[in-house]
């Protein structure tokens, strides 16, 4: 197992693939987070610390 892994050390493609996954996940997450019409949702959530339930 270990020797199989080590033979791959000079093979660039898995490394490029890993890099691609990292970047794709990151860019995908950013695109999703900045999607249209999401401002209201995030404003709502950002305001949670400023509430604490109504005072009785």
């Amino acid at each position: 197992m270990k020797s199989e892994v080590l033979t791959q050390a000079t093979n660039l493609w898995p490394q490029i693939f890993a890099l691609f996954i990292f970047i794709a996940v990151f860019v995908g997450a950013c695109l999703w987070i900045f999607r249209k019409n999401s401002a209201k949702v995030y404003d709502e959530m950002a305001n949670i610390p400023l509430e604490k339930g109504q005072k009785r």
Partner: peptide, 10 residues
């Protein structure tokens, strides 16, 4: 509120 909630997710 926090400056950017979106940034907090990232």
């Amino acid at each position: 509120p926090i400056y950017s909630y979106r940034l907090s997710i990232i």
